[in-house]
Nucleic acid binder design. Sequence first.
DNA 1: CTGAAAGCGCTTACAG
DNA 2: CTGAAAGCGCTTACAG
Lengths: 355, 355
Amino acid sequence: MVPARAKRTATLGADGTPRLEDVAAAAGVSISTASRALREHPAVREATRRKVRTAANRLGYEPNRMASALRTRISSFVGIVVPDITIPFFGLVVKAAQDVLEAAGYQVLVMNTHRDADQERQALRTLLSHRAGGVMVATYGGHDRGLRIPLVFFANVDEEAQAPRVVLSNREGIRLLVEHLVDHGHRRIAYVGGAPVVTSGSERLLGFHAAIAAAGLVDSATARVSDSWSAESAEVAATELLGASEAPTAFVAGGDPFALGIVKAVRAARLRIPDDIALVSFQDPDRVGGILEPPLTTLEGQERELGSHAARLLLHTIEQGSSATSAAEVRLPARLVVRRSCGCDPALAHDPTDL
Amino acid sequence: MVPARAKRTATLGADGTPRLEDVAAAAGVSISTASRALREHPAVREATRRKVRTAANRLGYEPNRMASALRTRISSFVGIVVPDITIPFFGLVVKAAQDVLEAAGYQVLVMNTHRDADQERQALRTLLSHRAGGVMVATYGGHDRGLRIPLVFFANVDEEAQAPRVVLSNREGIRLLVEHLVDHGHRRIAYVGGAPVVTSGSERLLGFHAAIAAAGLVDSATARVSDSWSAESAEVAATELLGASEAPTAFVAGGDPFALGIVKAVRAARLRIPDDIALVSFQDPDRVGGILEPPLTTLEGQERELGSHAARLLLHTIEQGSSATSAAEVRLPARLVVRRSCGCDPALAHDPTDL
DNA sequence: CTGAAAGCGCTTACAG
DNA sequence: CTGAAAGCGCTTACAG
């Protein structure tokens, strides 16, 4: 004879976790009823619901989302594809996106591509194999336009693709930076930024050329560009520019690593910022604030806005189904944050034209 | 009559993606054979294999990993639970772990707990519902000891739990830092670090008291502690300590935000590092290097080692099954990196006792 | 070497 | 209000 207790012990699933079947058995109802009760289906008597919930709690039942996703065809995943999650900019964007995506019930799969189109392709395949409900990507060119997943681009975009996107005001931002230097009286302004192989590289570079032209300055080979987005490459470029005969009096950095490299080059040349050389940057390498001396005049960081906007846009795109594949574009406005590296003393004046 | 082409067009699965069934039909074989062919099963004729592969490629077939995971009971997920992925320390650890985990065929689900035990519990439940094969956690106390998932702790550990762990040499590291200051001749040394609610907080604090005692110094309420791990809290604490009658001549920071707060407090007091006040830190807030002036004497960063060790340990634990739940502990050795904030001039001498 | 059938853990029309 | 049955897309003994 089997002891009474043994009858109570549920026969767990083969993987050791209790299944719906075990909950149903423990509650003395059918599997269908157990399923409905747990998902608050209205057509379940309150008493039954309670019985089932109690059993589920007692067994520590946690529904298998792989199984329910398979059955309902509702994915619980969304992918985010970035060059590298340890780059602070992307880390912050991903975090902001993750917060809204998780609130919507999705689990986020973050994939790093290391700025490599092949790895991006691979990441997208992996996401497809997990039947991600949608994907956010900051592209390096590796996505396949025939991909059958709702997709939104952020930061780095494939211009040709028919997909919604949310981007920074790259050109406009660089223009604000250049104009500010011009207001300070600078005429020989150099640019060090990312290579135009990706949106953030190309739009900022274009923006620099346009702004220089608009200011009526001569644009004489003072733009340097790097594939690696490294401080080292920027340091080399800035050192070279500083050593030229007609050396620049001011630098525009096309991103935080570039600003850092420029700072190092200027220090190595025993020059001072802003006294000898002015510096403004698209992004601030000193994200926590207060480390870098002097603090940099930059654009306002918009990682959170970028991430949450892109996430909401993706959610929207997923809901739409494949019906409306309009290529909505959200462009976040650029705002200048004046600090000291440009030559301003924010404590005294906010408008550099007052100087 | 159906046109010939229609017969070729596979009937896709209800979610629009081709299924194994579609590949099989296109290749003119059974579903079982298609499955075997795609997974390189030896008992499949080369010609058949080729037919199937061709069909799969033509259709853009990507196996549904949810379905295969369900069938094989082999999870494709592993979870990593951290306080906040945007904290550089955790970002780097996660990245390193992700690299080894992905190489082993897993997808990584990163969960943020915001230093909240309840959110940690919730994260673990979510991971369970996705039938993660294992979990790496830097705990804030929210994990359930009855959790049925292979688990390894990293950085922040539950001492009571029976689980493998990989941690920094917190005590030893702080001792190296304190001893170095003592070698510089300091006698009034203050500590600002994290609250002892988590391993990195408690072990470092304990390490400070022990090191001070070992050096024969008086330990007079010069240790300040913060729950928030914020630079702001450290700035307040350091300002207070600097204003005291017997003000410290040197600070030990229990983590990077604390170092930053101390730097700010010292600057605000118009004191210089290291001339007026020496500073050493468990971690370097200037991760890219070269921003902070003077560069900080710290311990060597071990994020990559921590991440990859923990990942490998988890992989090992998963393989073992539930059989061997030994609580292996890996403790990474602490190494001092002498820079300038302690008073050393690394260009002149590496051994401070030479000064 | 290949195929038919069972089953992983769920959900949901369809009956009752 | 509840249950039996089919099926999501796979894999894998079991026959042949």
